[in-house]
Amino acid sequence: MSNYPPKPPQNVPSGIAEKLTDQSPDVLRDIARYADELAEHREREAQLPEQDEQDEDVEVEADRPDDVFSKVTITVKEINNHRYYY
């Protein structure tokens, strides 16, 4: 371990880095846990729209009549909480 405090990563805003240097070790550990949980939450949120789109594709394929060609695609657009199928 070094006798000098670590340097913050370049992508951390200086205001946040300055605030962190004033905190106790216990508070810093709490902040680290919170930051990890927040990062995981945001990653899950980013994956939700992708999952919803995949689910919609499956629903549309299941609703397709038997006499419609398999290569026909349906696009679903949501505008003002209304779904439009093209």
Rank of each mutant, 00 (worst) to 15 (best):
K71M: 04
H41N: 09
P5F: 04
E43T: 08
Q54E: 11
I74E: 00
V68Y: 08
P8V: 01
R29F: 10
R42H: 15
H41I: 09
P8W: 00
Y34S: 04
Q10W: 09
K77P: 00
D26M: 14
D30W: 11
D66Q: 02
T75S: 05
N3W: 08
R83C: 04
E37C: 04
I16M: 11
Q10C: 07
D57P: 00
D52Q: 06
S24Y: 00
I79P: 00
K71L: 02
L28I: 14
T21P: 00
P25Q: 13
I74V: 10
E43L: 03
L38Q: 10
A17D: 10
E40L: 14
I79D: 12
P5S: 14
L48M: 14
E45M: 13
Y34D: 02
E40V: 04
D55Q: 14
D52S: 08
N81G: 11
Y86Q: 05
A39V: 02
E59R: 11
D66A: 09
F69Q: 09
E56F: 02
R64V: 03
S14R: 13
D55W: 05
E18L: 12
S70N: 07
K19H: 09
T21N: 10
D67A: 08
A46W: 10
V58Q: 10
V12A: 14
R64A: 02
P8T: 06
Y34H: 13
E56D: 09
V60Q: 00
E53F: 02
D22P: 01
A39C: 03
V58E: 08
Q23E: 13
P5H: 09
L20Q: 03
E78Y: 10
D67T: 03
D52A: 10
Y4P: 00
D36Y: 15
A46T: 08
L48G: 01
G15C: 01
H82D: 09
R44C: 03
A32H: 05
S14F: 12
R42D: 04
P5I: 08
E50Q: 15
L38T: 09
E45I: 14
D36L: 14
Q51W: 01
R64F: 01
N80R: 07
A17E: 05
V27K: 10
Q47A: 15
N81K: 13
F69K: 11
L48V: 11
T75E: 12
Q23N: 10
D52W: 09
N81W: 12
V12G: 07
T21E: 01
R83P: 01
Y86D: 06
E78V: 09
P49M: 11
S70W: 05
D36R: 15
F69I: 00
F69S: 06
A39R: 13
L48D: 06
D63Q: 08
G15F: 02
N81F: 12
R33L: 15
V58M: 05
E40F: 08
D22V: 01
E53H: 15
A62H: 03
R83N: 04
D63Y: 13
V60I: 04
Q10D: 14
R44S: 07
Y34M: 04
K77F: 12
A35Q: 06
D57L: 02
T75G: 01
D22K: 15
D26V: 12
A39M: 05
R44W: 07
D36E: 13
Y84S: 03
E59C: 10
E43G: 08
R29H: 06
I74H: 00
A62D: 09
P49D: 00
D66M: 03
D63G: 07
D67E: 04
P25I: 02
P25K: 07
A39D: 05
